[in-house]
Amino acid sequence: MALQSLDIKRRSATTTPSPQVRQTLEVAKLIDVSACIGCKACQAACMEWNDIRDEVGTNVGVYDNPSDLTANQWTVMRFNEVETADGGLEWLIRKDGCMHCEDPGCLKACPAPGAIIQYSNGIVDFHEEHCIGCGYCITGCPFNVPRISKKDGKAYKCTLCSDRVAVGQAPACAKVCPTGAIQFGSKEKMKEYAETRITDLKERGFDNAGLYDPAGVGGTHVMYVLHHADQPGLYNGLPKDPAISPMVSVWKGVTKPLAMAALGAAALGSLFHYVMKGPNEVSKELEDEMEREDERLRAQEKEDVK
């Protein structure tokens, strides 16, 4: 990824700027949940393009298959049967996967330099060759997305087809979606398109239709059009106001440099204490006292031998 390496906005565990002279267009994927028919073409396309296959699992009683994201399954359709107030049924199907947060908790938490990077187009990508398998990305992610592989102990997730996007292609899932529920383009264009969809939904009686582009994580590069944007929890527990957990912020915030300064001060302070106050030696009087006693005892021993 020689050219892409010029487009890095942020790099995990790196305190100096990454190569970022180029600014690429900020992109986004828009998933219109109201237009999704749950065919899983996107899941299949993801497996095909990325050439990953999950093990064949077991049916858990719902359409979700596999039942969760895995290191080999970077997107999963989540099927939710929701009863409406008037006794009707809504089948809310959400394509789950990495949200490509503008302020990614995974990247913030990652201790391995360059294992997680964010391109200037907004895509958050894992570089598994630098991954050490600690799982901090899982701890940092507000959406429970990354998964550690049992095979190699590395973390995996959706790449937003960063390889395709780099050469001007849409992600595989967006390419195959038969209903146009998955759109891809500049973030700005996607927001405009979302507006038209939301207007349409509102006309059809979904008064709370809206865009899911949560501000708590600085917005996302995967957005949803939801018929019930006021209740994202209906869509398989999509968080209403996701943000990097305060715990993670404390853990990864200014406390670290402060703690390092404190430890450095303790070590340097010790050295200077020694240099300025000198060692804490046993007093000469006590040494002499013990010496005299030794002499006395030695003399006595000699006497006894005689």
Binding site: A13, T14, T15, P111, A112, P113, H130, I132, G133, C134, Y136, G153, K256, P257, A259, M260
Partner: peptide, 18 residues
């Protein structure tokens, strides 16, 4: 080494970061 990037090179003492 995991605490702060400044110390990450210490992982080499153990063979590799992993």
């Amino acid at each position: 080494a995991f605490f702060h990037p400044a110390f990450f090179p210490l992982t080499q003492l153990f063979g590799s970061p992993t």
